[in-house]
Design a protein around this nucleic acid. Structure first.
Length: 564
RNA sequence: UGGGGUAUAGUGUAACGGUAGCACAGCAGUCUCUGAAUCUGCUUGUCUAGGUUCGAAUCCUAGUACCCCAGCCA
């Protein structure tokens, strides 16, 4: 990359996978070719951990001028659905990548079947009639060798006949398997005569009812990689001790050999990441679905208000290694703030309104005041905001007994209303039970626009909305999915659901400035001093719904919390 | 009593025998019509014990801790 070339992202950090690829390119192992693949099983929605893998695999292809395929690992029809296939393609594209080839493991079922026959003929695979229980019992344990299946020594002819019978549907589900003949005493359990095919009559989302035997992951994955001429087959750490088996199959078949490389999966604080747990959340209706904005799914993050740029920057920043750590959620949030700070236009919105009457402002008068759309982006321009006698301000921005260091409104204190005037609070109106219902203030007409000609300073600037121009809107305030950083750490007999955050969603009716009236679904804005918000798909004409994607850093809240 | 992995600030990640760097978090300050952003500075680290070496995060030896593996799941 030339020095004067301008790229949006800095040179990515070096990592062990890139170093290995550099070595391969240097020693000619793959003739300088780089081909990766992203191989999801379509049994659930993609999450931020998959985004890490997507960025890695597609990123490598891009960096080296190679290719990256999207390949669905659809070898278990009992769990896989077209809905998931569709969502996965959407998500990969949304994250920002386009695959070179689109494939399915099921595209290769015939070839994989033929290869199984090759193995049988070599005497390296046999049909086993053991029941699932017997298979388990004779597999041994990590500390105890397994025992050979009594069917291990069947003749090649008998195996061939039986295996054909399996394929032809002559046997009941689960009654037989095809197993590799390796070593029941091997220290690596994966090499103790692993099952290659099981009989399973399930409708496959692509092949329909054509097959009643399906290859296991180990028997399919490497061969798919080989067919696609993948150079670097990148997967997560739990597959590390499958690598000897991956290599064994390729070697016995004498076919092209990709290099499997394992890295550690992403863990994040305050959420859960396993598909099983995410499925639990959806099925047990702890939240609204796979794309609930509290989900760490890509579709959830998208709905929440995350941008592809933020996701990619995050994935870049966290790096790649074999160390199994947990990344702080603050990293993800920071990536979003950094991106939206540059892009999102600012608006005034009051989440928890309290009424303010400007006593000395003429009844019926309305002024259109100038407001900057985005101080970080002059090109974003200006807009008008209406000001009138009755306003709403944030409840948090008023204190009857202002603590030390409180810059906002309080009896007798003056603050600036953003883009408008200096106002001073003179009176607090309460209802019978003592709740504040209204504040009576006066404004200084000389401070129009927010500056005082006499050079007088105010410490605080607060946001506001003109009451009669305000658009009431539903705003969903999201917080962490889980109330603790490590939700999987639970007492005996309990599961992660006990750590779900009961206040992860608070819904308020906010008052918005009128320029937001026709904002489109998916639009991101900063509500000044509050956070970044995204227009939810539940919005309808005349009924806006916003999601809070992330709050702004809040020094005052931190100070107050510390003070207590 | 098996096999496969991993250990660098609070959290991640570099450094590949030669000044332990970066980011996020935290703290202090600056700036500010957002208590945001910006900008400045600061605190905190090589799992342990030996050894080799002028010099070790890096090499050697011995430990320790943690993760994964006994689905006809992927």
């Amino acid at each position: 990359m030339s020095a004067n070339e301008t790229t949006p992202t800095p040179t990515p950090a070096s990592n062990f996978i890139l170093q290995l690829i550099d070595e391969h390119n240097a020693n000619g192992k793959f003739a300088g070719r780089v081909a990766t693949r992203f191989p999801p099983e379509p049994n659930g929605y993609l999450h931020i951990g998959h985004a890490k893998s997507i960025c890695l695999n597609f990123g490598i292809a891009k960096k080296y001028g190679g290719t990256c395929n999207l390949r669905f690992d659809d070898t278990n029809p009992s769990k896989e659905e077209q809905e998931y296939v569709d969502s996965i393609m959407d998500d990969v594209r949304w994250v920002g990548f386009q695959w070179d080839g689109l494939y399915y493991a099921s595209d290769y079922f015939e070839q994989i079947y033929q290869w199984a026959i090759v193995l049988v003929k070599k005497g390296k695979a046999f049909v086993c009639d053991q029941t699932p229980d017997q298979v388990r019992e004779t597999r041994g344990t990590p500390n105890r060798a397994g025992e050979n299946s009594p069917f291990r020594d069947r003749s090649v002819e008998e195996n061939l006949k039986l295996f054909e019978g399996m394929k032809a549907g002559e046997f009941a589900d689960g009654s037989r398997t095809l197993r590799a003949k390796i070593d029941m005493g091997h220290a690596n359990i994966n090499l103790r005569d692993p099952i290659l095919y099981r009989i399973l009559r399930a409708h496959h989302h692509r092949t329909g009812d054509k097959w009643c035997i399906y290859p296991m992951y180990d028997w399919a994955h490497g061969q798919c990689d080989s067919i696609e001429q993948i150079t670097h087959s990148i997967c997560t750490l739990e597959f590390e001790h499958h690598r000897p088996l991956y290599d064994w199959f390729i070697r016995e078949l004498g076919i092209y050999a990709p290099q499997q490389i394992e890295f550690s999966r992403l863990n994040l604080t305050y959420t859960v990441m396993s598909k099983r747990k995410l499925l639990t959340l959806v099925k047990e209706k702890h939240l609204s679905g796979w794309d609930d904005p509290r989900m760490p799914t890509i579709s959830g993050l998208r709905r929440r208000g995350y941008t592809p740029e933020a996701i990619r920057a995050f994935c870049e920043r966290i790096g790649v290694s074999k160390y199994e750590g947990t990344i702080e959620m603050a990293w993800l949030e920071d990536a979003l703030r950094a991106d939206l700070n540059k892009k999102a236009e600012r608006r005034l919105a009051v989440l928890r309104p309290i009424k303010v009457v400007i006593d000395n402002y003429p009844e019926g008068q309305v002024e259109e005041l100038d407001a900057v759309n985005n101080p970080e982006d002059p090109a974003a321009g200006m807009r008008k905001v209406p000001f009138s006698r009755v306003l709403y301000i944030e409840r948090d921005d008023f204190r009857e007994d202002a603590p030390k260091g409180f810059f906002r409104l309080a009896p007798g204190k003056e603050v600036r209303l953003r883009w408008a005037y200096f106002v001073k609070c003179n009176e607090v109106v309460k209802d019978a039970s003592g709740n504040i219902t209204e504040l009576r203030c006066t404004y200084d007409p000389a401070t129009k626009g927010g500056n005082s000609p006499d050079g007088r300073k105010v410490k605080g600037t607060i946001h506001w909305v003109s009451a009669k121009h305000a658009i009431p809107s539903e705003v969903r305030l999201y917080d962490h999915l889980c109330k603790v950083a490590f939700p999987d750490e639970v007492p005996e007999g309990q599961d992660f659901t006990v750590n779900l955050n009961p206040t992860s969603l608070e819904v308020v009716t906010a008052m918005l400035e009128p320029s937001l009236k026709d904002v489109a679904i998916g639009t991101k804005v900063q509500f000044e001093r509050l956070g970044y918000f995204s227009v939810d798909k539940d919005s309808a004409p005349g009924k806006l719904v916003f999601n809070r994607a992330v709050t702004l850093a809040d020094t005052w809240a931190k100070m107050e919390k510390k003070g207590k």
